[in-house]
Design a protein around this nucleic acid. Sequence first.
DNA 1: CGCCATTATGACAACGTTGTCTCCTCATGG
DNA 2: CCATGAGGAGACAACGTTGTCATAATGGCG
Lengths: 327, 327
Amino acid sequence: MSDVARLAGVSIKTVSRVVNDEPAVHPDTAERVVAAIEQLGFRRNLGARNLRRGSTTGTIGLIVEDVGNPFYSELNRAVERIATSFGRHVLTGSSEENSDRERELALEFCARRVDGILVVPAGMQHGYLVPEMRAGTPVVFLDRPAGDIVADTVLVDNLGGTIDAVTHLVRHGHRRIAFLGDSPDIFTAAERLRGFREGCVRNGVSYDESLVVMRTPTPETIAHAVATLLTGPSAATAVIAGNNRVAVHLLRALAHAEHRPAMVSFDDFELADLLDPPVTVVAHDVSALGHAAAELLFARIQGDQSAPRKVVLPVHLVARGSGEVAP
Amino acid sequence: MSDVARLAGVSIKTVSRVVNDEPAVHPDTAERVVAAIEQLGFRRNLGARNLRRGSTTGTIGLIVEDVGNPFYSELNRAVERIATSFGRHVLTGSSEENSDRERELALEFCARRVDGILVVPAGMQHGYLVPEMRAGTPVVFLDRPAGDIVADTVLVDNLGGTIDAVTHLVRHGHRRIAFLGDSPDIFTAAERLRGFREGCVRNGVSYDESLVVMRTPTPETIAHAVATLLTGPSAATAVIAGNNRVAVHLLRALAHAEHRPAMVSFDDFELADLLDPPVTVVAHDVSALGHAAAELLFARIQGDQSAPRKVVLPVHLVARGSGEVAP
DNA sequence: CGCCATTATGACAACGTTGTCTCCTCATGG
DNA sequence: CCATGAGGAGACAACGTTGTCATAATGGCG
């Protein structure tokens, strides 16, 4: 800036006035300054500006499990859309389902003075965020709740959705239903398992623990579950996939089976409607989840001091055929 | 920091020493300082730190068309992985295929003093980046080249891949092949169209412009193209989808047709292998694209001054069945 | 016992901006 | 001809850090 000032023959304050469109600068002076800026390729340093003005940095942090997972990238997009409408940018980070990494990212973002943080938590302990929140960085949890602190949270109806899935299958005559979920350490997985159990109870089907597998979905774990639970004379006649990753691996594991059992997937996923038969899913609006959480975050950023809110978004079962297969 | 200093009864410089793990601080003093930091929830301001040290901000910018598109989110993930290994964070932005928005994002990122920028360009004019690059912000273009400047670029072999697709279809007896591509303003779309034409020539098939549609893929535009080119007695017997968006819309438009023409998609996509018949694709390694571009960017950030590089990554045709349908 | 090297600490400036205050000039009106 | 005020511009401090240098207290050694 001082280079620009020297070249234009003015003080740096005048340059500052020009770049900030402040009034009371003579047009001729402004023109000289603009020319100098142009010539030197000057771009003001936003970091210094924010420091001096004590203003916000104009960024928010988003921590998810994996920005490459279509579920989270849709979330990312929804958040970005809201952020842009508030003139903010988004710093993203993947926790890789590792609570240390989550913590590291969150604290790093705070040190960068983001205006707020959206977290899909990996861990169950969030006490480390209390000082940051007290210091004025709002935090909103989404998809999963905070472990041990009270904070704004936006969830989907995991419990109800899974109950619906069970009910749907039972209505189509199934009594032996398997449940393949993600690691039970993950809130949504545990909650959906709870829904599965509750669904069994409500529908008068005995809950059979031997038909449940809760493990991080990989081609191997799912293939093994298929071999154990969905093969042979005592196989389950229907299966519920606990999330989109499980569903995809499950479909692949079943691709060459002579008979695909009835199936419902929690989470919709692209092309589910084009498979044969199309996959019945418990769908939820991922964009709505991102929107709701981001809107809540910006309300906090703009000073909303009301009590922490907990929002639960509805889900709905989309019957497409795979759940209607007779036992 | 001064609050911490006061509470600990030391100077702020000593606090600085403690938070930076500098030697020559008495253990007792350090302990008092740490306690004060703990008590006040102090977190150092990285913005101020970077300003004073003149060091990098530890962030890189990534501009893509849409962070929610699985293609770009996989790219995002690959970039993040490299960035993390270099201790950097990623600021992302979606240009929405709008060159003004791309420019706005890029200049904003520069003003934030990111260490470098990765751009999947939306526009064809990038002169605006020249001053920034001269000022020391490296820029690497990926998936598409810069419009009117010389810069590092990482592309995939669009031309060769589409030629392969045509060859594959011709080998299976097709002579009337349709091509559905994205808007011809997009480099990759134009390049793939060029590959289509070249493929026709090389395989002795007459290039028929009436079998080509180049438009932003939406359910409507694709349905219209299907009605026009893939229906009726003079319909093409095979079709090439110019990218994953086109492919998905195309599959949906064809879902209820009595007969699905032979098909090859440029870009692989999840579940392509599980459709009936599985979709033959021209696959390229999106992660490799992101990795290569990010590695190149970090080489520049670390001072590599060699001439701008242009990298073209190979693609390979994955035959799955949909391209093997007889005409 | 005095000197020097070492250790521990603080004062101060600087990073690149912007807010506040002050100063100067010139036109206007009485 | 002077008081008034508006318009234009600069000096200076401050934002929260850290690098440089200076200073004070310690201990070892001749």
